[in-house]
Design a protein around this nucleic acid. Structure first.
Lengths: 339, 339
DNA sequence: GTGAGCGGTGGGAACGCTCCCACGACCGAC
DNA sequence: GTCGGTCGTGGGAGCGTTCCCACCGCTCAC
């Protein structure tokens, strides 16, 4: 009992029903110009009556475009759905893409396994362009995609010398802001809990930390540096290590808010007052920063704007393939009670 | 300077290069049977040399399938990325789909605005089937999609009398488990913080609560019922209302863990001990349940399994269109320290 | 009265693939 | 030797669009 649910009507059938030619019907559908009012009306009626829907595959086959853009997120589901950062950036991307009349297709590129199918999907003309998020430094995905002639924009800065466009918050500047603020508050021993060195957000915020110290005429003290993985627990552990090693620490700049939360927790357990004994500054201005105890001073970045910017850059790249410079988004400091 | 990046090679070119016919080349690519070893080798070499990638649009045009499945999530980005439930279900879906050699395409159907483009996307033969998540009761999306002849499976049960398949955890059974547990613990005044009445998870867990009471020979006391929106803050507020109205409450079943967390918070602020004074049970067994203070007793559901089940049902539906019954996934109680 | 110009139109060709049929070569069986 | 097979193969037809060109009937200028 194979219920064939009435085969989809084709353009030809619409045209026949409207008593016009295939060409005219096509023109009506694509908002074409040179069509008489009478013909337009007839075609529109026929479409409504038949419930006609254009076949995107046939169209894409000849136009070589699909009006869809992929957002590839190279992280585990857990991370993606744990960080509000992704929610913001996706909202920005979705909105900007909708404005441009394009559909967002989200692809998760979990571990590097299972990459095969993803690769194929991107490569086989399903989308006109690709936005890439949160890949680690050594990822060759962007280059592979570009090799197939697909425009790519990466969120987060890439290594030097890469070809593809990118959009990133100015991590160095933001971290510098944080350190300058702590210096100004009169802190003497400013530590940092850095992120993974193989992620841009990790290394460049650390770089900004060093630069900030230098700007204040201070030198980097290795004993004041710990690394975490951007997770809360790693922040707590790093803070413990820091207190052990350098009990005189009186400020800590954390490469993201989640690790700052962990640090806060450790400090509370260790009986250190925040900000009296130790000032804490985060990075991101995630929602949790506001509800932390005490509310967290942090470097503000706008994921939503970042998303919009990525789309803008991608659309430009698709329009004309000259090489575009990357885009750096400015940050500012939000001073709350933890510093 | 329009860099045309070397036009993509076509199947015809591959065939020519391999010195075979188009048909043979196609057979090799699609793992076809009747091909000599010599020809297969030649074609594979040609593919490698040319960097050939099949054009999915052309293929879909004739085969009428795309090997891609859409997962439509009808929630705001904030909710989607806030609840670990989605992470789990997406992992399950992604894995099951990958096993079946299909690509997962994620579409967010934010507010009901912007639905137009989504509709078009689904309708225009981009995907072979649709998985739908978390729609409210009155959503007509599934019916619209079905009307276009696309198989649909809904996560979360639908209203009675609908045509499409669904997969859901057995909310009624789970809530009953929770109430039975509280009864057994000797609780006299068992309240509930229910979810939105227009969401299945909300109404059916409430239904299970009522049934659980009935099974213990008790009647529903309206003063012991509050409603929240599944958010933590709403749970806290509901608990406050409950304490105000019925100070003698000694147990509360919350329709999800997040609201249970809110309740815990309110109880702490009100100086009630958990579980001595008030026992709290949640629903979901989300990661937070484990790290709550005290660790939360809760009804366990497995989003990952739910995802897998949805895919299985969808694939069956695509294979043969007989009507499938919905699937209910069992739950069990995880007893921790809050009860 | 002829010809250029223009709004509006129809339909052939092409996009890149799969499906399927016809065909040649070779086998063993009668 | 002929006859069915089987195996491997080539290529025509067709999927549903868009693109583009030829063409129709007018109007307007000379």
């Amino acid at each position: 009992m194979n219920r064939t649910p009435r085969p989809r009507p084709t353009l030809e059938e619409v045209a026949a029903r409207a008593g016009v030619g295939r060409g005219t019907a096509s023109r009506v559908i694509n908002g074409g110009e040179k069509v008489s009012e009478r013909a337009r009306q007839a075609v529109e009626d026929a479409i409504a009556e038949l419930g006609y829907v254009p076949n995107a595959n046939a169209r894409a086959l000849v136009t070589r475009r699909t009006d869809a853009v992929a957002l590839v997120i190279a992280e585990s589901e857990e991370r993606v759905f744990g960080e509000p950062f992704f929610a913001g950036i996706i909202r920005g991307i979705g909105a900007a893409l909708a404005d441009a009349g394009r559909q967002l297709v989200l692809l998760l590129a979990q571990a590097s396994e299972r990459r095969g199918p993803l690769d194929e999907y991107l490569t086989r003309q399903h989308v006109d362009g690709v936005l890439l998020l949160s890949l680690h430094d050594d990822d060759e995905l962007p280059d592979r995609i570009r090799a197939h002639g697909l425009p790519v924009v990466v969120g987060g800065r890439a290594n030097e010398g890469v070809q593809h466009g990118f959009v990133d918050v100015d991590n160095v500047q933001g971290a510098g802001l944080a350190v300058a603020h702590l210096v100004e508050r009169g802190r003497a021993r400013i530590a940092t809990i850095a992120g993974p060195a193989d992620m841009v957000a990790g290394s460049s915020r650390f770089q900004g930390y060093v630069a900030g110290l230098a700007a204040a005429g201070r030198e980097l003290d290795e004993r004041l540096v710990e690394r975490g993985d951007f997770g809360q627990e790693s922040g707590a552990a790093a803070m413990r290590a820091l207190l052990d090693r350098s009990p005189d620490v009186d400020a800590v700049f954390c490469a993201n808010d989640l690790m700052a939360l962990g640090a806060l927790q450790t400090l509370r357990e260790a009986g250190r007052r925040v900000p009296e004994d130790v000032a804490v500054v985060g990075f991101e201005d995630a929602p949790v920063a506001l509800s932390a105890h005490p509310p967290l001073t942090t470097v503000h970045q706008s994921p939503e704007q970042m998303g919009r910017e990525m789309v803008a850059l991608l659309l430009e790249t698709m329009a004309g393939p000259e090489d575009r410079p990357g885009r750096m988004l400015p940050t500012y400091l939000v001073i709350r009670d933890s510093s």
